[in-house]
Design a protein around this nucleic acid. Structure first.
Length: 839
RNA sequence: GGGCGUUUAGCUCAGUUGGUUAGAGCAUCUGCCUUACAAGCAGAGGGUCUGCGGUUCGAGUCCGUAAACGCCCACCA
């Protein structure tokens, strides 16, 4: 039999295993008649390297899928990647520009070719990283969002929603990214506090020498002002309603209108209305039949409506206009403020609200379906932890129409064709002369279909029939609005069921100081570097078992190192077992108490692990396994097993328990468990497809468990006593009764120290339940020891009086469970006895 | 302006339906190279569980309230 290397070497252990698993197709979902268990991977963007967040997210999924696979489920984990429209396009454009090529000078076809080769490059790198992480993905089912099948699903959804009146095209005020030059959805706008100012401007009232004072943070938009609004309840300004003001610099007359939007409390109570550059003003304008004027172009520069400011960047124009207002005496004052400004999630430039013709999804009916469905526990998406359901529901309650068209090249082309003012929406081009819409769809439009489009939908494939709906979706809470919500409403609408039964939400990875990992802070950690130093097994176990669901994780390298130590411990324990299994043969076994003890602990561990695994409580799985392996198996059983290594029963139990340990650990640390498993005298072809341990009640021996627990407690107490009194190698023990002390004698190496009687000035009782001895220090009692003893007596007295008080409390005795009262009485008795011995 | 989360040992975090002396890892201290492991073994110290009030025989846990920090949402000119 092969032995394990002397030291745990993660690089050696992890080398080549993934390739072997893949070659043998262990990860492929089989067609066998087993119950399915499905996960679709959140497809990473083909824009760069995977970060620690991906490692965390995918490790959780791999734990789930490996667990179920070992339990005999037909486990399918669908891999795939996302084309990531705007993000990838930005990267490809940058790459081209860096090479001195203007991406806009290329034809769409040429550019797309470039983008696909970029995708191939990053797909390759992502595959390598998945391999390093050990993810048991079924590559036969791999998908890419721009695949023909998925594109068909996208078109189908678009066409159907259009025909149902749930997709429409129209001119609306949308969020515009002037750098990427595309429309954005509300979710793609992130609000950041920036330093700005309130510019207080004089708007002279026509036909009088009075003026209204207007405060704005965006003076450059005044060129497009349509009105000034005051609140209908604001008595200060009622007399002006119906009159006009003369727009400074522009010289255009605009009406003073009455609208609730004007806040009496805020500023001067007068607000300028710029329909085409502010979402609120847009609404006000519609109410008052105003006609908007666009003064900023899609390039973020002032346009031809902006007088001589035309061509100036919007921020330069702001400075210029403020200067001009000041010069002409219109600027009353400038008040510095910090206010929140919407920025593009991708390009980080301030978004510009713009009037534009775009495609929208009418959300209300779709969102209502989700809200209704979430009321049915048997049909709803169950969030883990459950509080995140509120996030989704709230989004569904307040949602507004989703702008889905993007002025990009990278993505699914909108299946709409135009000819002579007519619009055709369908799966394919209606033919000659029709021109397809230039725009593509929001990336999230296709991602929203991921759980079913990857399984072949809209075709009712066998894959779709067997594996849909999926069992669990694993993602971070930051992705709920973008993705989870949209998958949920699209799934309900098109597949008439939830896309996944459970939605496991994890947090974000932070650095040691609790800051978000980001490129700009330079505090990001490359999981590949961690794997190189500590191995994927250590990284995975650390990531998955370190937090409870939904909470953020502070990455600490020391913890990965301490996980490495844990694996090293397992390695060495396995080495010990294997060393003693060289002559292993199956034979009659005769369980001793200690064997029954470890089998009981083992089965109880299996039971807990099963419970926690089924509840996705991996932190609990981690701690249960850690404690069992380190404390019960290594510290106790192996130590005691050393006394009976020639016993085949011991060998048998060692093998059985070790095998179970490896299997339970396997989902978390696949590489090292496979390595050791292969060396066991009895094993299947791979641990990947081995059967997960089951709880066996017949192997639970409560009597023996209690017996050994007592002995171990007694042994521990002896060590504590000996150590706290600084008793060295010269000591004597006198047993106080006829109990079986054979195990303590061996464990504590008492041979040669046992006497029938002993006389010494220093004697200390070591008593645990039925086990009792007197420990004698062969040296004379020192003052220090005397003090320790005094302290112990004091603590004992305190404890006794506390218990006496509790037991004399009538209410406690009456209301507390009888078992608890009995325990208290026992303890009191025991402490009193011990006190007597000490005195 | 709404909503949520966090607050437990020096640090990072667990703590099930309320019930022994509140746990772990790392760090610290003491003693050990005991042939699986010194990346280890055997011990030890360290917490008025953020404050206040309530329910209860009993509260880290349930209820109310305050504070600090963080996050999400919302049209803040």
């Amino acid at each position: 039999m092969e032995m394990l290397e002397k030291k745990y070497n993660h690089e050696f252990v992890e080398e080549g295993k993934y390739e072997w698993w893949k070659e043998n197709d262990f990860f492929a979902a089989s067609k066998k008649d087993a119950k399915p268990y499905t996960i679709v991977i959140p497809p990473p963007n083909v824009t760069g390297r995977l970060h620690l967040g991906h490692a965390w997210d995918t490790a959780i999924q791999d734990v789930c899928i490996r667990y179920k696979r070992m339990q005999g489920f037909d486990a399918l984990w669908v891999p795939g990647m996302d084309h990531a429209g705007i993000a990838t396009q930005a990267k490809v454009d940058k790459k081209l520009r860096d090479a001195g090529i203007d991406p806009r000078s290329m034809s769409r076809e040429e550019w797309t070719k470039q983008a696909f080769s970029w995708k191939e490059e990053y797909a390759l790198s992502i595959h390598n990283q998945w391999a390093k992480l050990g993810l048991s993905l079924d590559y036969h089912k791999e998908r890419f969002t721009l695949d023909e099948g998925l594109s068909k699903a996208v078109r189908k959804v678009f066409v159907d929603l259009y025909q149902e009146g749930l997709i429409y095209r129209g001119e609306r005020l949308i969020n515009w990214d002037p750098l990427a030059r595309t429309a954005l959805s509300n979710e793609e706008v992130i609000y950041k506090d920036v330093e700005g100012a309130f510019y207080h401007i004089k708007y002279p009232i026509v036909g009088s020498d009075e003026y209204l004072e207007i405060a704005t943070t965006r003076p450059e938009t005044m060129l497009g002002d349509n009105a000034v609004a005051v609140n209908p309840l604001d008595s200060r300004y009622q007399k002006y309603v119906g009159k006009s003001v003369l727009l400074p610099l522009v010289g255009r007359e605009i009406p003073i209108i009455s609208d609730e939007h004007a806040d009496i409390e805020k500023g001067t109570g007068c607000v300028k209305i710029t329909m085409n550059h502010d979402p609120n003003d847009y609404e006000v304008g519609l109410r008052h039949n105003l006609k908007g004027i666009t003064v900023i172009g899609f390039d973020g520069k002032m346009n031809e409506n902006a007088l001589h400011y035309c061509g100036l960047d919007r921020f330069l124009a702001r400075e210029k206009i403020v200067q001009d207002l000041k010069n002409e005496g219109y600027l009353l004052r400038v008040e510095k403020i910090v206010h929140s400004v919407g920025h593009s999630e991708r390009t980080l430039v301030p978004v510009e609200p713009m009037i534009s013709k775009q495609w929208f999804v009418k959300m209300r009916p779709l969102a209502d379906k989700v809200l209704a469905n979430q009321k049915d526990a048997s049909k709803k998406v169950h969030f883990l932890p459950s509080r995140f359901e509120k996030i989704m529901n709230h989004w569904m309650e307040i949602t507004y129409d989703w702008c889905i068209s993007r002025q990009l090249w990278w993505g699914h082309r909108i299946p709409a064709w135009y000819k002579d003012g007519e619009t055709f929406v369908g799966m394919d081009s209606p033919g000659e002369g029709w021109v397809q819409d230039e725009d593509v769809l929001d990336t999230w439009f296709s991602s929203a279909l991921w759980p079913f489009s990857t399984l072949g939908w809209p075709d009712i494939t066998s894959l779709y029939q067997k594996y849909y709906p999926t069992d669990v979706l694993v993602t971070g809470y930051d992705i709920i609005p973008f993705w989870v919500n949209r998958m949920t409403f699209q799934a309900l609408h098109f597949t008439h069921q939830r896309p996944f039964k459970y939605c496991y939400i994890h947090g974000l990875i932070r650095d040691k100081e609790g800051r978000k990992m980001s490129k700009s802070l330079g505090n990001g950690v490359d999981p590949m570097d961690v794997i190189k130093e500590y191995g994927a097994d250590a990284l995975r176990y650390y990531l998955v078992t370190s937090t409870s669901p939904g909470t953020d994780l502070r990455y600490e390298e020391e913890k990965v190192r301490s996980t490495w130590n844990f694996i090293n411990k397992i390695w060495n324990a396995s080495r010990f077992v294997l060393m003693n299994l060289e002559d292993y043969q199956e034979s009659e076994i005769c369980l001793k108490d200690i064997d029954k003890w470890i089998l009981t602990k083992y089965n109880k561990t299996v039971k807990s692990v099963l419970k926690y695994m089924d509840r996705y409580e991996f932190q609990n799985v981690g701690s249960v396994l850690y404690d069992f392996i380190w404390e019960d198996f290594c510290d106790q059983y192996i130590e005691v097993a050393k006394f009976s290594l020639d016993d085949f029963t011991t060998k048998n139990v060692l093998l059985k328990v070790l095998t179970g340990i490896l299997k339970m650990l396997h989902p978390f640390m696949p590489f090292v468990t496979e390595e050791i498993y292969q060396k066991l005298p009895i094993h299947e072809k791979t641990i990947v497809l081995s059967m997960y341990p089951i709880y066996d009640e017949k192997e639970v021996y409560l009597k023996e468990e209690a017996l050994l627990d007592d002995i171990f407690s007694f042994v521990r107490l002896f060590r504590t006593t000996k150590s706290s009194y600084n008793i060295g190698k010269e000591f004597a023990v006198v047993f106080q009764n006829e109990e079986d002390y054979s195990l303590p004698i061996k464990m504590l190496k008492l041979e040669g120290h046992i006497f029938d009687t002993f006389s010494s000035s220093a004697s200390y009782p070591v008593t645990y339940k039925n086990y009792s001895l007197l420990l004698y220090d062969s040296h004379t009692k020192t003052k220090e020891e005397e003090e320790i003893k005094e302290k112990e007596i004091l603590l004992l007295k305190q404890s006794i009086s506390k218990r006496e008080a509790l037991l004399s409390n009538e209410n406690f005795c009456k209301k507390a469970p009888a078992k608890l009262v009995l325990e208290e009485q026992e303890k009191l008795k025991f402490e009193k006895q011990k006190l007597e011995e000490l005195l």
